[in-house]
Every structure is written in structure tokens, then in C-alpha cells.
């Protein structure tokens, strides 16, 4: 190469437009411009603050106390009125936010971790024994009806309050694992993985340094989807009496409301379903926005 050519390339360096930025910066930038997603994030943060307050004992501490008469109408003291035995419905519904977040976070984090690791291993060793085992496990777990599995696990764990979590984690990881496995199968034949082999990078280092970081966008999006699924399942399971036993949950409130609605009192039903609706919608908006922002095909 002759000198002027080399220096001309030098002078240009990279395209003038590009700032120093990672793919994450780009995704964040895109996310910030997504109005629905940002609104969703704001609402989720509000809910999260409410949950933190409950954990720290700032509010909703009196959710179990009898504070008034039976089926009081909404008032300044009881914003959503009171229930059959005079407990404050607002305090109970706010307390339920913390229950939802507790279940959502535990299940989302653990199911995503499990799905990510098993999916990555299966994908990297596709066609070999590890893969066959994981795929077989996914098939078996998928074929058991969810509520039957929960009931079975709840029974087996003898009323342990975490039976619900265990049941959800043991089924929710499957979708994540399938997605990660597919992505890893695609990634492992890309040239940069081959380049790592050519340099002499050991196999497990290739998985953790070169392959897994490129599935993080899937894991992030999947964890938000799992979170929503866990919250919804928690409510349904609690409603059915398979979920929360010692605490408070929107599901328990809705179960309570089955008697009330017939009597023309909608306090429990409206408070629980509206709060749940708000959280699930906000999370869905956030998760859609994340998906758009993180899609590597759109981040060029």
C-alpha cells in the first residue's frame, strides 16, 4: 500500500457520524424515543416504588386490620371502601403489588437464568447428548398441563408457600431456553466464533465470552415477558387457592369478590383487576419497546 492511500484512510478513520457507542447505547437511545415504551416504564417504576414501600413498611401496613364496617363505600379514610369484615381494600390492593412483584421478580430472574444456561448449552452442543437431554426435558415438561403440575408440586411440597414459584420456574424456562438454543445454533456457525476457534480460544470461553453476550437481548426481553406471565399466573393460582396462602394477592381479592358482586359491591373486584390490568399493560408496552430497541437486525 502506498503512503498517501494509507494516510487518507487514517484521516477519515471511522465515519464522522458515529459517536463512540456500544450496541447497548444504541438500544437505549431507541428505547428513549419509544413513547409507549417509556410510559410503560414509568408506570412500572411507580408500581415498583409502591412495592418497595410495602416491603419497607412505609404504607399498606394495616392491610390485615379491621378498620371499618362491612362494605363501606369509598371515602377519604378508605379510598376503595372496605370489604366484608371491614378491612381497607386500598391497603390490601397496594399490599398485593408487593406480592405480585415478589413472585414476578423471583420467577423471571430464575426462569431466565435457567433457560439461558440450559438453552445455551443445548445450542452449543446441538446434536450431542447434552442437547438431546435438554430437548427431551422441555418436551416432557411442556406436555404436563400447567395447573395439574402446580397442584402436584404444591401437594408434594406440603403447602410450602414457594410451591407456586417452583412450578412456574420449572415451566417458564422452556420458552426462553428454546429461543436461546435457536440463537446459539445460529451464532455458533458465524465467522467470529470460527475466528475464536482459529485463535485457539477454549470452547467454554467461547460460549461465555463470544456467544452468551450476543443472546442478552433475548434474555432481557424474555425476562419481562416471563415477569408478566408470572404475575398473571400468581393471580389465577391464588384465585384457585393454589397460590398465596398467608399474604394478600389480587387473586385472593377477586376470589373474595365472587360473593360481593352478587350483592352489588364491586370494591374488591375493581381494585384488584384494575391494578393488575395497569401493571400488565405497562409491562407489555415496555416489553414490546425493548424488543424493538434490542433487535440486532434493526440496530445496524
Amino acid at each position: 500500500m502506498n503512503a498517501p492511500a494509507a494516510s487518507a484512510v487514517d484521516a477519515n478513520g471511522a465515519p464522522a457520524a458515529s459517536r463512540r457507542e456500544t450496541l447497548w447505547h444504541k438500544a437505549l437511545w431507541k428505547l428513549r424515543r419509544d413513547r409507549a415504551g417509556m410510559a410503560g416504564l414509568a408506570v412500572v417504576m411507580l408500581y415498583f416504588l409502591a412495592a418497595i414501600g410495602v416491603w419497607l413498611g412505609w404504607w399498606a401496613t394495616g392491610w390485615a386490620e379491621v378498620a371499618g364496617g362491612k362494605w363501606e363505600a369509598p371515602s377519604a379514610a378508605h379510598w376503595f371502601g372496605t370489604n366484608l369484615i371491614g378491612q381497607d381494600i386500598f391497603a390490601r390492593s397496594v399490599y398485593s403489588i408487593s406480592t405480585a412483584f415478589e413472585v414476578g421478580l423471583v420467577v423471571a430472574v430464575l426462569a431466565t437464568l435457567l433457560g439461558g444456561v440450559l438453552g445455551a448449552l443445548a445450542g452449543f452442543f446441538a446434536g450431542r447428548f447434552t442437547d438431546e437431554l435438554v430437548v427431551w426435558l422441555m418436551g416432557v415438561l411442556d406436555s404436563i398441563p400447567f395447573y395439574l403440575l402446580v397442584a402436584a408440586i404444591a401437594f408434594a411440597m406440603a403447602g410450602n408457600p414457594y410451591a407456586m414459584h417452583v412450578a412456574m420456574i420449572s415451566t417458564f424456562w422452556i420458552t426462553t431456553a428454546r429461543l436461546v438454543r435457536g440463537e446459539v445454533i445460529k451464532l455458533r456457525q458465524l465467522e467470529f466464533v470460527e475466528a475464536a476457534h482459529a485463535i485457539g480460544v477454549p470452547e467454554y470461553t467461547i460460549v461465555f465470552r463470544h456467544i452468551l453476550p450476543n443472546t442478552l437481548h433475548i434474555l432481557l426481553v424474555q425476562s419481562t415477558i416471563t415477569f408478566v406471565a408470572a404475575i398473571k399466573s400468581e393471580v389465577i393460582l391464588s384465585f384457585l387457592g393454589l397460590g398465596v396462602k398467608d399474604g394478600m394477592s389480587w387473586g385472593l381479592m377477586i376470589a373474595e369478590s365472587t360473593i360481593e358482586v352478587l350483592a352489588g359491591f364491586f370494591g374488591n373486584f375493581l381494585a384488584a383487576s384494575l391494578l393488575m390490568f395497569g401493571l400488565v399493560m405497562a409491562f407489555n408496552f415496555l416489553s414490546d419497546a425493548l424488543q424493538d430497541a434490542l433487535d440486532p437486525r434493526q440496530v445496524s
Binding site: 458465524l190 465467522e191 467470529f192 470460527e194 475466528a195 463470544h210 453476550p213 440486532p296
Partner: peptide, 13 residues
Amino acid sequence: IIFQDPFASLSPR
């Protein structure tokens, strides 16, 4: 080795 596809041969992250 030097690869064909300069977009696939470098780890994006």
C-alpha cells in the same frame, strides 16, 4: 485465517 464477511467475523459486542 481471514474471513470473507467483515460483518460476521468480528464479535459485535
